[in-house]
Write a protein that binds this DNA or RNA. Structure first.
Lengths: 162, 162
DNA sequence: TGACTAACGTTAGTGCCACAAACGAAACTA
DNA sequence: TAGTTTCGTTTGTGGCACTAACGTTAGTCA
């Protein structure tokens, strides 16, 4: 074997069953899977979030996009830069409020979004392989309740990945 | 309100229900809670993992500890340093194999572990507040299956937190 | 016995991510 | 008009998972 002196891993049950630890490990695997999947298409998790928000709610300022995606203002700048460089999005000054930029989804961006959705769905499938459809939905609901509960107030609405 | 121009957050459902994203956000909250809780006692998530492994399986080499805790070899060095500085653990060369160090839990370390367990339990409780006992157990089982499934083979066994 | 291979602990460094701080410009507000 | 707030932006920080490399020590086996 590669490491220790005994047989299997022998991770203590107190560690194995610790919810926060399980969340961390599952999240690590999840982020790796989606990063790899989207990376093959030269995309990033945040790209998908921004494109989805734009398709869902139409053109928006960067501040509004930050709200809808959870991407931090200071990180969103680079994301829009990259999307604009790929012509998936257009950044134009807002004539009605010259502090703002209006970000608009291009037709190319919409087609791109379709592709990213496929890649992302595949990654979710791979992530949730060991779970049945009912279990997947249950997991999603349980996680959703936790996230929603802690989202109110805390400094973190997290620009977490996909 | 603090940001955008419309009412609530209005996060698209496609983002809100994405399992990998939910995992990431839940994990972020979880890590923050346990880091804060343990931080109040001048401790770190990894400290707990190492102490638990030592109590569970007795004295061990750093390599064995790395296996049992999931903490990377290169990070474990600093963890043992800190635990040894607090006299919660003793690091001694292994007479039978001079490449190895034998890490031993001290009585003080064992008492410390009791305290950290309390803090950690409280943090888990806070994290899982919106869930019933049955739901907590279900979440743990579902996450455990995912983690176990992806743990076999991948480069990541993750030195994830608690 | 000696050469090779592998495991050990350790150091240093990488890339990603969530986030804070501060700034000029523009817009509201009193 | 003065003061405050929002906007986009730049810069920096701390934590985490992980890789690479190195000297030391142990096994392997020609």
């Amino acid at each position: 074997m590669t490491t220790g002196e005994n047989g299997g891993a022998a991770v203590p049950a107190r560690l194995r069953e610790l919810p926060s630890r399980l969340l961390g490990q599952a999240s690590t695997h999840a982020q790796r899977l989606v990063t790899e999947a989207l990376g093959r298409a030269d995309a990033h998790k945040w790209h998908y979030a921004a494109l989805v928000a734009l398709e869902e709610s139409g053109p928006a300022s960067q501040a509004a996009l930050s709200d809808r995606t959870g991407i931090h203002r200071s990180d969103l700048v680079a994301v829009i830069n990259e999307l604009a460089a790929r012509e998936l999005v257009e950044r134009a000054p807002d004539p009605g409020d010259r502090r703002r930029n209006v970000i608009t989804l291009t037709p190319l961006g919409r087609r791109r979004l379709r592709r990213l959705e496929q890649l992302l769905d595949a990654a979710q499938g791979e992530l949730l392989t060991p779970l049945s459809a009912a279990e997947r939905e249950q997991l999603t609901r349980l996680l959703g309740r936790i996230v929603e509960h802690h989202a109110h107030g805390g400094p973190a609405m997290g620009s977490d990945g996909q």
